[in-house]
Amino acid sequence: MHRATRRFGSPRAYLRFLSVSFVVNIQSVLEYRANFLLQVFGMMLNNAAFALFWGMLIGKVGAVGGYGFDDVMLIWALVSTSFGLAHVVFGNVRSLGQIIQRGELDLYLLQPKDVMLNVLSSRTLVSAWGDFAYGFLVLALLPGFDPGRLALFCALAFTGALVFAATLAAAESLCFFIGDSSGIAGAVTEFLLSFSLYPETIFGQGMRWVFYTILPSGFIAFVPLSALNGLGWPAAGIAACAALAYSAASYGLFRLGLRRYESGNQMGSRV
Protein backbone atom coordinates (compact mmCIF):
# COMPACT_ATOMS: atom_id res chain seq x y z
CA MET A 1 0.00 0.00 0.00
CA HIS A 2 2.75 2.36 1.03
CA ARG A 3 4.83 1.35 -1.99
CA ALA A 4 1.87 1.84 -4.35
CA THR A 5 1.14 5.28 -2.90
CA ARG A 6 4.80 6.24 -3.14
CA ARG A 7 4.95 5.21 -6.82
CA PHE A 8 1.74 6.90 -7.90
CA GLY A 9 1.37 9.67 -5.30
CA SER A 10 -1.53 10.22 -2.93
CA PRO A 11 -5.05 10.26 -4.42
CA ARG A 12 -5.73 13.59 -2.71
CA ALA A 13 -2.68 15.15 -4.37
CA TYR A 14 -3.87 13.84 -7.73
CA LEU A 15 -7.36 15.19 -7.23
CA ARG A 16 -5.82 18.57 -6.42
CA PHE A 17 -3.58 18.29 -9.49
CA LEU A 18 -6.52 17.39 -11.78
CA SER A 19 -8.62 20.25 -10.43
CA VAL A 20 -5.76 22.74 -10.93
CA SER A 21 -5.25 21.47 -14.51
CA PHE A 22 -8.97 21.75 -15.09
CA VAL A 23 -9.13 25.35 -13.82
CA VAL A 24 -6.07 26.40 -15.85
CA ASN A 25 -7.55 24.81 -18.98
CA ILE A 26 -10.86 26.61 -18.45
CA GLN A 27 -9.11 29.93 -17.93
CA SER A 28 -7.14 29.35 -21.11
CA VAL A 29 -10.20 28.63 -23.30
CA LEU A 30 -12.21 31.46 -21.74
CA GLU A 31 -9.57 33.92 -22.99
CA TYR A 32 -11.48 33.71 -26.29
CA ARG A 33 -14.97 33.85 -24.83
CA ALA A 34 -16.93 34.47 -28.05
CA ASN A 35 -15.13 31.60 -29.75
CA PHE A 36 -15.79 29.35 -26.75
CA LEU A 37 -19.53 30.08 -26.77
CA LEU A 38 -19.75 29.71 -30.54
CA GLN A 39 -18.10 26.29 -30.43
CA VAL A 40 -20.20 25.11 -27.48
CA PHE A 41 -23.51 26.13 -29.04
CA GLY A 42 -22.35 24.95 -32.48
CA MET A 43 -21.70 21.49 -31.08
CA MET A 44 -25.07 21.43 -29.32
CA LEU A 45 -26.81 22.32 -32.58
CA ASN A 46 -24.71 19.71 -34.33
CA ASN A 47 -26.00 17.04 -31.96
CA ALA A 48 -29.56 18.33 -32.17
CA ALA A 49 -29.55 17.53 -35.92
CA PHE A 50 -29.65 13.83 -35.04
CA ALA A 51 -32.58 14.41 -32.67
CA LEU A 52 -34.43 15.76 -35.71
CA PHE A 53 -33.45 12.71 -37.74
CA TRP A 54 -34.72 10.30 -35.09
CA GLY A 55 -37.83 12.40 -34.46
CA MET A 56 -38.78 12.29 -38.14
CA LEU A 57 -37.93 8.60 -38.61
CA ILE A 58 -39.69 7.34 -35.47
CA GLY A 59 -42.59 9.69 -36.24
CA LYS A 60 -42.99 7.88 -39.59
CA VAL A 61 -42.36 4.23 -38.63
CA GLY A 62 -42.76 3.97 -34.84
CA ALA A 63 -40.07 2.30 -32.67
CA VAL A 64 -36.85 1.23 -34.42
CA GLY A 65 -35.45 -2.06 -33.11
CA GLY A 66 -37.71 -1.68 -30.05
CA TYR A 67 -36.26 1.76 -29.23
CA GLY A 68 -38.70 4.66 -29.00
CA PHE A 69 -37.72 8.33 -29.38
CA ASP A 70 -37.11 8.76 -25.61
CA ASP A 71 -34.77 5.73 -25.54
CA VAL A 72 -32.72 7.00 -28.47
CA MET A 73 -32.52 10.46 -26.92
CA LEU A 74 -31.43 8.97 -23.59
CA ILE A 75 -28.62 7.15 -25.40
CA TRP A 76 -27.63 10.42 -27.06
CA ALA A 77 -27.69 12.20 -23.68
CA LEU A 78 -25.48 9.55 -22.05
CA VAL A 79 -22.99 9.24 -24.89
CA SER A 80 -22.78 12.97 -25.50
CA THR A 81 -22.14 13.86 -21.84
CA SER A 82 -19.67 10.97 -21.37
CA PHE A 83 -17.77 11.84 -24.55
CA GLY A 84 -17.82 15.52 -23.58
CA LEU A 85 -16.60 14.87 -20.04
CA ALA A 86 -13.77 12.62 -21.28
CA HIS A 87 -12.53 15.39 -23.62
CA VAL A 88 -13.16 18.25 -21.19
CA VAL A 89 -10.99 16.67 -18.49
CA PHE A 90 -8.61 14.67 -20.72
CA GLY A 91 -8.50 16.95 -23.77
CA ASN A 92 -5.27 15.42 -25.07
CA VAL A 93 -6.72 11.93 -25.29
CA ARG A 94 -6.94 11.94 -29.08
CA SER A 95 -3.56 13.68 -29.52
CA LEU A 96 -1.69 11.19 -27.37
CA GLY A 97 -0.38 9.16 -30.33
CA GLN A 98 0.88 12.29 -32.07
CA ILE A 99 2.61 13.45 -28.86
CA ILE A 100 4.33 10.06 -28.52
CA GLN A 101 5.27 9.92 -32.19
CA ARG A 102 6.83 13.39 -32.16
CA GLY A 103 8.82 12.55 -29.04
CA GLU A 104 7.06 15.26 -27.07
CA LEU A 105 6.59 13.15 -23.93
CA ASP A 106 9.99 14.36 -22.66
CA LEU A 107 8.39 17.41 -21.16
CA TYR A 108 6.00 15.33 -19.07
CA LEU A 109 8.60 12.73 -18.09
CA LEU A 110 10.56 15.39 -16.26
CA GLN A 111 7.59 16.45 -14.15
CA PRO A 112 6.78 14.80 -10.82
CA LYS A 113 3.20 13.74 -11.61
CA ASP A 114 2.19 10.55 -13.40
CA VAL A 115 3.01 10.91 -17.11
CA MET A 116 -0.24 9.55 -18.53
CA LEU A 117 -2.53 11.62 -16.31
CA ASN A 118 -0.36 14.68 -16.82
CA VAL A 119 -0.42 14.44 -20.64
CA LEU A 120 -4.11 13.67 -20.88
CA SER A 121 -5.25 16.43 -18.53
CA SER A 122 -2.99 19.17 -19.89
CA ARG A 123 -5.58 20.36 -22.40
CA THR A 124 -9.36 20.71 -22.71
CA LEU A 125 -11.30 20.43 -25.95
CA VAL A 126 -13.56 23.46 -26.39
CA SER A 127 -16.26 21.79 -28.50
CA ALA A 128 -16.50 18.97 -25.92
CA TRP A 129 -18.13 21.44 -23.52
CA GLY A 130 -21.06 21.54 -25.95
CA ASP A 131 -21.31 17.74 -25.94
CA PHE A 132 -21.11 17.72 -22.14
CA ALA A 133 -23.93 20.27 -21.74
CA TYR A 134 -26.09 18.73 -24.49
CA GLY A 135 -26.65 15.51 -22.53
CA PHE A 136 -27.98 17.40 -19.50
CA LEU A 137 -30.24 19.50 -21.70
CA VAL A 138 -31.73 16.41 -23.34
CA LEU A 139 -32.17 14.70 -19.96
CA ALA A 140 -34.00 17.74 -18.61
CA LEU A 141 -36.35 17.77 -21.61
CA LEU A 142 -37.21 14.06 -21.39
CA PRO A 143 -40.12 12.92 -19.22
CA GLY A 144 -39.41 11.66 -15.68
CA PHE A 145 -36.64 14.09 -14.79
CA ASP A 146 -36.01 14.20 -11.02
CA PRO A 147 -32.99 14.59 -8.68
CA GLY A 148 -32.56 10.80 -8.27
CA ARG A 149 -32.47 10.27 -12.03
CA LEU A 150 -30.05 13.20 -12.40
CA ALA A 151 -27.70 11.67 -9.79
CA LEU A 152 -27.80 8.29 -11.56
CA PHE A 153 -27.21 9.99 -14.91
CA CYS A 154 -24.17 11.86 -13.50
CA ALA A 155 -22.69 8.63 -12.12
CA LEU A 156 -23.25 6.83 -15.45
CA ALA A 157 -21.80 9.73 -17.44
CA PHE A 158 -18.71 9.61 -15.19
CA THR A 159 -18.18 5.86 -15.74
CA GLY A 160 -18.89 6.30 -19.46
CA ALA A 161 -16.29 9.08 -19.65
CA LEU A 162 -13.71 6.78 -18.04
CA VAL A 163 -14.47 4.01 -20.54
CA PHE A 164 -14.25 6.48 -23.44
CA ALA A 165 -10.96 7.98 -22.23
CA ALA A 166 -9.45 4.56 -21.45
CA THR A 167 -10.37 3.04 -24.82
CA LEU A 168 -9.25 6.02 -26.88
CA ALA A 169 -6.01 6.36 -24.87
CA ALA A 170 -5.30 2.64 -25.35
CA ALA A 171 -5.78 2.98 -29.13
CA GLU A 172 -3.45 6.01 -29.18
CA SER A 173 -0.88 4.18 -26.99
CA LEU A 174 -0.49 1.56 -29.73
CA CYS A 175 1.80 4.20 -31.22
CA PHE A 176 4.54 2.98 -28.83
CA PHE A 177 4.42 -0.43 -30.51
CA ILE A 178 3.53 0.16 -34.16
CA GLY A 179 4.79 3.69 -34.84
CA ASP A 180 1.82 5.38 -36.50
CA SER A 181 -1.43 4.31 -34.88
CA SER A 182 -3.49 7.26 -36.12
CA GLY A 183 -5.48 5.09 -38.55
CA ILE A 184 -6.43 2.55 -35.87
CA ALA A 185 -7.12 5.27 -33.28
CA GLY A 186 -9.33 7.17 -35.74
CA ALA A 187 -11.23 4.01 -36.62
CA VAL A 188 -11.70 3.10 -32.92
CA THR A 189 -13.11 6.59 -32.21
CA GLU A 190 -15.51 6.44 -35.18
CA PHE A 191 -16.65 2.89 -34.50
CA LEU A 192 -17.05 3.41 -30.76
CA LEU A 193 -19.13 6.55 -31.25
CA SER A 194 -21.22 5.14 -34.08
CA PHE A 195 -22.08 1.89 -32.32
CA SER A 196 -22.85 3.72 -29.07
CA LEU A 197 -25.28 6.17 -30.66
CA TYR A 198 -27.64 3.68 -32.31
CA PRO A 199 -30.00 1.09 -30.79
CA GLU A 200 -28.09 -2.03 -29.76
CA THR A 201 -30.81 -4.30 -31.15
CA ILE A 202 -30.40 -3.19 -34.78
CA PHE A 203 -26.95 -4.82 -34.97
CA GLY A 204 -28.12 -8.33 -34.13
CA GLN A 205 -26.81 -10.91 -31.66
CA GLY A 206 -23.65 -11.69 -33.62
CA MET A 207 -22.09 -8.31 -32.93
CA ARG A 208 -22.97 -8.04 -29.27
CA TRP A 209 -19.65 -9.45 -27.99
CA VAL A 210 -17.86 -6.56 -29.74
CA PHE A 211 -19.84 -4.03 -27.67
CA TYR A 212 -18.65 -5.57 -24.40
CA THR A 213 -15.00 -6.12 -25.35
CA ILE A 214 -12.90 -4.18 -27.89
CA LEU A 215 -15.47 -1.44 -28.61
CA PRO A 216 -17.20 -1.10 -25.24
CA SER A 217 -20.35 0.74 -26.38
CA GLY A 218 -22.24 -1.57 -24.02
CA PHE A 219 -20.70 0.05 -20.95
CA ILE A 220 -21.01 3.59 -22.37
CA ALA A 221 -24.58 3.43 -23.64
CA PHE A 222 -26.51 0.17 -23.34
CA VAL A 223 -25.90 -0.85 -19.68
CA PRO A 224 -26.39 2.79 -18.57
CA LEU A 225 -29.65 2.92 -20.58
CA SER A 226 -30.91 -0.16 -18.72
CA ALA A 227 -29.90 1.52 -15.44
CA LEU A 228 -31.90 4.64 -16.29
CA ASN A 229 -34.84 2.61 -17.61
CA GLY A 230 -35.38 0.71 -14.37
CA LEU A 231 -32.40 -1.43 -13.33
CA GLY A 232 -31.05 1.51 -11.31
CA TRP A 233 -27.88 1.59 -9.22
CA PRO A 234 -26.97 -2.14 -9.48
CA ALA A 235 -26.54 -1.70 -13.25
CA ALA A 236 -24.53 1.48 -12.53
CA GLY A 237 -22.28 -0.72 -10.35
CA ILE A 238 -21.59 -2.98 -13.35
CA ALA A 239 -20.73 0.09 -15.43
CA ALA A 240 -18.39 1.31 -12.66
CA CYS A 241 -16.57 -2.06 -12.47
CA ALA A 242 -16.15 -2.03 -16.26
CA ALA A 243 -14.82 1.56 -16.12
CA LEU A 244 -12.22 0.54 -13.54
CA ALA A 245 -11.18 -2.50 -15.55
CA TYR A 246 -10.83 -0.54 -18.82
CA SER A 247 -8.93 2.27 -17.05
CA ALA A 248 -6.51 -0.19 -15.45
CA ALA A 249 -5.94 -2.01 -18.76
CA SER A 250 -5.37 1.25 -20.62
CA TYR A 251 -2.96 2.51 -17.96
CA GLY A 252 -1.09 -0.79 -18.07
CA LEU A 253 -0.76 -0.62 -21.85
CA PHE A 254 0.57 2.95 -21.65
CA ARG A 255 3.17 2.04 -18.97
CA LEU A 256 4.25 -0.98 -21.01
CA GLY A 257 4.63 1.19 -24.09
CA LEU A 258 6.46 3.91 -22.19
CA ARG A 259 9.39 1.51 -21.73
CA ARG A 260 9.83 1.57 -25.51
CA TYR A 261 9.60 5.35 -25.77
CA GLU A 262 12.47 7.14 -27.47
CA SER A 263 13.09 10.78 -26.70
CA GLY A 264 12.70 13.32 -29.48
CA ASN A 265 15.49 15.44 -27.91
CA GLN A 266 13.20 18.41 -28.21
CA MET A 267 13.32 21.59 -26.19
CA GLY A 268 9.87 22.49 -24.95
CA SER A 269 7.95 24.29 -22.27
CA ARG A 270 4.42 24.30 -20.87
CA VAL A 271 3.04 27.80 -20.56
Binding site: Y32, A49, L57
Partner: peptide, 23 residues
Protein backbone atom coordinates in the same frame (compact mmCIF):
# COMPACT_ATOMS: atom_id res chain seq x y z
CA UNK B 1 -14.40 38.47 -39.64
CA UNK B 2 -14.37 35.65 -37.04
CA UNK B 3 -11.15 33.77 -36.31
CA UNK B 4 -12.66 30.40 -35.41
CA UNK B 5 -15.57 29.79 -37.77
CA UNK B 6 -15.82 26.00 -37.40
CA UNK B 7 -19.23 26.29 -35.68
CA UNK B 8 -20.71 27.73 -38.92
CA UNK B 9 -19.37 24.74 -40.81
CA UNK B 10 -20.88 22.30 -38.33
CA UNK B 11 -24.27 23.93 -38.70
CA UNK B 12 -23.97 23.89 -42.51
CA UNK B 13 -22.85 20.24 -42.41
CA UNK B 14 -25.84 19.26 -40.28
CA UNK B 15 -28.28 21.09 -42.54
CA UNK B 16 -26.86 19.14 -45.48
CA UNK B 17 -27.20 15.94 -43.44
CA UNK B 18 -30.80 16.52 -42.38
CA UNK B 19 -32.11 17.98 -45.63
CA UNK B 20 -31.54 15.07 -47.95
CA UNK B 21 -28.54 13.02 -46.80
CA UNK B 22 -29.71 10.92 -43.86
CA UNK B 23 -33.31 10.99 -45.04
Amino acid sequence: WIEDNSAFFWIYQKLVLIVGTLL
